[in-house]
Amino acid sequence: MDNRGSSAIGGRTGYVLVVIAAVLVSAVLVPVVWEETSGPDDAVAVVSIDRTITSSTVDALEEDLREARQNETVKAVVLKVDSPGGSAAASERLYLAVQRTVEADIPVVASVQATGASGAYYAMLPAERIYTMPSSMVGSVGVRATTPAPPYGNEIRTGPDKASGTMEQRREQVETLRRMFVGSVMKHRGDDLNISREEVSHAKVYVGPNAVENGMADRIGTQSDAIEYAADQAGLDSYAVVEKEPPTLGGIILLGTDSGQPVVVKKSPVGYDGVDAGTPLMVYGEVQYQDEVITNGSA
């Protein structure tokens, strides 16, 4: 009798206790799962352009921007820029990706850290507003490329321009890229600029206050200011800030020894292995080309 009663109570009570325990455990887990699966309702995504712009870094950045366009919770994008630019083609790709994001009705705001020059400046042109730090370097609207190498005798080619073409051809190619770069600057910032097309072509970099004064940038401000403005443009009162992981290093630096002496070989992150294709660059600053930087440490 006792056994039966005990068993019956244990059975019903047991089930009740199990249900209560399950609900309690669920109550603990639900907020965690909800947080993981839903995230905040609205977010401002921060996409970092923080190194030389190469094809591989743009792969990652394009993916970040595509994600921002596709994720309905991302309402605005801030470009955190600290780059001297990169290859012309990669810079143009990034420009187009930013432009598509703007066209998708997502406010894009740029925040320049130390440098937002050349190809990096190109990339942020479609931004609604460009913030710079007081000491940021902004501008350098121009293109550069190596001159064609003299014909190499020990080779058979199928045509005279197979390897590199003529100086005049290279000049025309670079000029074409310059026209498109300057054309893009005038398209996006023509109404704000207080300097002429020719002055833009001068490829000068400007420190923050100069850049704001001449219209190459809009405001002196920090990344927080940029985030706040982006959120405001998206009509957000409360929002989360989602920092996208910056792309991995694009260049390769090798350290080695040669005959006991230290040798440094730094490979251009925008060229091709073993081939100097005269890749046009949109870069501010001195460039170490592949064939230029093999040196003895004591030289």
């Binding site: 887990l29 799962v33 993981e36 699966t37 839903s38 995230g39 309905e72 919770t73």
Partner: peptide, 10 residues
Amino acid sequence: TAVAGTIGTS
């Protein structure tokens, strides 16, 4: 909850 959480982040 997980399913509900993913709704809206299509």
